[in-house]
């Protein structure tokens, strides 16, 4: 599996992967091997290792990890998100996908998503798994306020809004599950590597 390690500043390395699936595998491998980094930050197709004492050695080492399988044998836990599908964009997503709203709900529930990375806000997990023909554009005009627990789609991702924020993703429904609690252990329910299914509320 060919990955490329790029140096970032004086003490970080960015591992570039040919796909999101390989990036997930590399992330799992970095955690398994306990690489001593202050932060390990997955991106869509990259893994950033920040705060390394010997970045050159880590960069050289990772490029020798040729035995990484695209899908790791031991994958992350599956988290189920009970969801009520009554979101304001359900009808427009149905038009986009050429389906009834019931079929949109059935499709969203049938998929198992992978948390590729977090960003935008604490606990906001980019869950990949929509197939290419179901790609969803962001809203032309983002909403000034999206409620916490909103279950939404954009691009090839789905996400659960962890807290009230502005947002441009298309909202399919809502969940009462809290995906972000700074006092929780862990504080984020949907860490990278987690698999996610949406189920009947």
């Amino acid at each position: 599996m060919s990955v490329t390690a790029r140096r970032v500043g004086l003490d970080a390395v960015l591992v570039e992967c040919p796909s999101g699936a390989v990036a997930r595998a590399v992330y799992a491998e970095v955690l398994r091997r306990v690489v001593a980094a202050v932060d390990v930050v997955p991106g869509a197709t990259t893994i950033l290792l920040d705060g390394l004492s010997d970045p050159q050695a880590v960069a050289a080492d990772i490029e020798t990890w040729v035995d990484i399988e695209a899908e790791p044998i031991s994958r992350g836990p599956v988290v189920e998100i009970p969801t009520t599908y009554d979101g304001p964009d359900l009808a427009s997503v149905a038009r986009l996908w050429g389906m009834t709203t019931a079929e949109v709900v059935g499709t969203h529930r049938s998929l198992t998503f992978d948390v590729d990375f977090c960003g935008f806000a604490p606990g906001f997990a980019y869950c990949s798994g929509l197939p290419e023909h179901l790609r969803v554009p962001r809203l032309q005009r983002p909403r000034p306020r999206v409620e916490p627990g909103s279950v939404a789609v954009a691009d090839l991702y789905t996400a659960v809004y962890p807290m009230a924020s502005p947002g441009g993703w298309q909202i399919l429904g809502r969940t009462s599950v809290s995906v972000w609690d700074p006092r929780g252990e862990p504080p984020g329910l949907l860490a990278p590597g987690t698999r996610v299914r949406f189920v009947d509320a």
Partner: peptide, 27 residues
């Protein structure tokens, strides 16, 4: 989207750089 470190000099399409400080987004 990819991870950002403190001090990253990001260049949006207008070509004007911005340097990430303490509260920068993680990606």
């Amino acid at each position: 989207s990819e991870g950002l470190v403190l001090g990253s000099v990001q260049v949006p399409p207008n070509g004007q750089p911005l340097v990430m400080l303490a509260d920068h987004p993680v990606t």
